[in-house]
Computed example of a mutant assay.
Amino acid sequence: MPLDDTLAPSGLNSLGLPKKPADTRVVVAMSGGVDSSVVAAMLAEEGYDVVGVTLQLYDHGAALARKGACCAGRDIHDARRVAEAVGFPHYVLDYESTFRDSVINEFADSYLAGATPVPCIRCNERVKFRDLLGVAKDLDADCMATGHYIRRYMGPNGAELHRAADAARDQSYFLFSTTREQLDYLRFPLGGLASKAETRALAARYGLAVADKPDSQDICFVPSGNYAAVIEKLRPGAAEPGDIVDELGNVLGHHGGVLHYTVGQRRGLGIGGLGEPLFVVRLDPDRRHVVVGPREMLQTRRVVLKELNWLGDAPLDGEQEVLVRVRSTRQPVPALVRATEDGAEVTLLTPEEGVAPGQACVFYAPEGTRVLGGGWIRRAA
């Protein structure tokens, strides 16, 4: 079974490197789950010099952690068990302080500013693909492999990022900020698999104890999906009460804190009996206002982005046709994108609902599966 769909010239190993597997050191980022465990076992079976590294990202005994989340106590134990069973070295590195400063604090501050952040992207960007990748290079590894469902191809102008073969498992939305330099060094052996069932079958064949382990949740440090509880723990007293208003500023009700609401929310507003259904269309934390309106007010055609990461072959010059995904659960839709001085501006050819500041807007080629990068949503109009 090929590890990657890359068509490499003769003389390169399955990871696209000009070395025998035994002479190729690969650091595998191990979360303790089935995906990264299969990657490590697969590469070890092929004869690669595998080194497993797990990052402890938070105190697994603290209230922020939850049973079954990645990068905490049980999962570190599971990663170590896989390494011992397969027979390769495994290291655990304490990155709790880095994770708190680079991911958790920004998550809390973004919510308090009225945004809807995606901490998993920041974790990949600022911890796994920056700090852990640096550790891999310090260990003299030739590349670093992860269990992400995304594909890396070699194109005419270098390494390219492509959506996973299994659309249901595709993680390209969470990896849009991967840089060209990082992509040169990274490998994603599971990106070409047809389904998660195939991954679990491989885990069973390798005899891994995690073969039937449930998937971890996206946001590992949020217990039961209760964002507000986490933010209130991190920022005591931050949930200041305010008003629920319409677009004209008329007070329709009251709330216990802006952080309890997200753009597009309909349920739990506590303002029933006003006729047509109302949705959260905007958050104004400075005034402590939750602005609501009819569903059509959620429709967006223009999206302003910051922190643009462009992976196209040529610089983004003028207006370019792309497909964009404005939330991880949405399908890519046609759009036009043009670079600006501090990011990019996207024009959606068909309006999208519930486009929220703090989310990512990811670009794809109009044809095929290539990921062209993306940016962070600063505002929507």
Rank of each mutant, 00 (worst) to 15 (best):
F279G: 02
E276Y: 10
I244N: 01
G272T: 02
Q265N: 06
G256Y: 02
H260S: 07
A239H: 02
G253R: 10
L269V: 09
G256F: 05
H260T: 00
V245M: 02
G270F: 03
G253C: 13
Q265F: 03
E276N: 10
G273K: 09
V245W: 11
I271K: 08
H255R: 09
G257M: 01
G257Y: 09
T262D: 14
H260N: 14
L278E: 12
V281H: 01
H254V: 08
V263F: 12
Q265W: 10
D246E: 12
P277M: 06
E276A: 15
R267E: 14
G273T: 07
G275N: 07
G253Y: 03
D243H: 14
V258L: 15
G270N: 10
L274G: 00
E247D: 10
Q265V: 01
G249E: 05
H255K: 08
G268Y: 08
A239L: 11
V281N: 08
L252P: 14
G275Y: 11
V280H: 02
E240L: 15
L252M: 12
G268M: 04
G275S: 05
L274V: 01
V280W: 01
E240Q: 15
V281E: 03
V263Q: 08
I244R: 06
V245L: 03
G249K: 02
V251Q: 09
F279Y: 15
V258H: 13
G272P: 00
F279L: 11
G253I: 07
L269M: 03
G264W: 07
V263P: 10
G256L: 05
G273V: 06
L274M: 10
G249Q: 03
D243F: 10
D243C: 12
Q265Y: 12
H260C: 00
R266C: 01
N250P: 00
G272M: 02
G256P: 00
V263R: 15
T262H: 11
L259H: 03
H260F: 13
N250M: 07
R266M: 09
F279A: 06
L259P: 08
L248P: 00
P241V: 01
H254S: 14
V263N: 13
G273L: 11
G273D: 13
D246T: 11
L278Y: 08
A239G: 00
L278A: 09
A238L: 10
E247W: 12
N250Y: 04
H260D: 12
H254Q: 14
Q265I: 07
D246H: 11
F279V: 05
G272A: 08
L274P: 02
L274I: 09
G256E: 15
V245H: 06
L269G: 06
D246A: 11
G257Q: 06
G273S: 12
V245P: 03
G253E: 13
A238Q: 10
G249I: 13
V245E: 02
G275I: 11
G242A: 06
G242S: 04
Q265L: 01
V251I: 15
P277N: 09
R266A: 12
E247N: 04
V258M: 13
L274A: 04
E240G: 05
L269N: 06
G264E: 07
I244M: 09
E240W: 00
V281C: 09
G253T: 08
G272D: 15
G253F: 12
L248V: 02
G273F: 01
G272L: 04
I271D: 10
G270P: 05
G275H: 07
G264Q: 04
V263K: 15
L248T: 15
E276H: 11
T262R: 14
